[in-house]
Write a protein that binds this DNA or RNA. Structure first.
Lengths: 123, 123
DNA sequence: CAGCATCCACATAGATACTG
DNA sequence: CAGTATCTATGTGGATGCTG
């Protein structure tokens, strides 16, 4: 059965690297997490509090994915109590540039989209 | 229970219009569908064939969402057999501009991300 | 503190069959 | 042709408790 990941490397132009890359960061939490790390490195529970409605589990998963893909770096300090810090890599920073443009577009056009939704709701 | 849509209008700056907008087009098919419509208007079964691994049901849902949000326009020609054409709106076109930048980033950094994934796999 | 394992509820996608 | 309805399988997220 063909699924998301199967297409990786299949067609050059169209829907192929895009899925592999964007499906990962297009999930519920990745973008929020990256943005939380934009200004400075942070610890696990800091991120947990800051993002607010994310669960420990999902934050954990998200961070590991982001680390796997190379967007963030995870540093463990061998102390007691343990301290782990997350920070953006260069790849992560470079990703945020086009992503921010998209976010800007979303902010600008948000109200128009909401209006469009309401229009189609009442019709 | 708080979910995606609950946050619409909650916080101004951070994760709010972004979710409302990007969650919709961040799904499996919306982007692919928009890109399929980039060059020219197309009919339902045309899109079905072109996207390839999408089901009729998902294409139908995706198209309706995109129409609701104002990215595409749906035109029904009262003929037999029925003909329905989908095309991008101005909003849809303007969205593709920052989105394309992101896609470009994904294409450029795809291989590095894949390498990063493999590295973390074998470790 | 950081984070994994387990369990559970719900959302989502595919397949299929049917309609105008 | 252009969908919609139903049914089901799988995935995904939340809550919680446990560990180093």
């Amino acid at each position: 059965m063909p699924s998301k990941t199967d297409r990786a490397g299949e067609r050059p132009g169209a829907g192929c690297p895009i899925r592999g890359v964007l499906d990962r960061i297009g999930d519920q939490w990745s973008l929020l997490t990256l943005e939380a790390l934009e200004t400075e490195k942070k610890r696990f529970n800091e991120l947990l509090r800051e993002i607010g409605d994310i669960s420990k589990q999902m934050l954990s998963k998200t961070l590991r994915h982001l680390e796997q893909d190379g967007y963030i770096r995870r540093t463990v300090y061998p102390e007691v109590p343990p301290r782990v810090e997350y920070e953006l890599t260069e790849l992560g920073r470079s990703f945020l540039i086009p992503m921010k443009a998209l976010v800007g577009w979303a902010e600008q056009n948000h109200s128009e989209i909401i209006r469009s939704r309401l229009r189609h709701e009442t019709e």
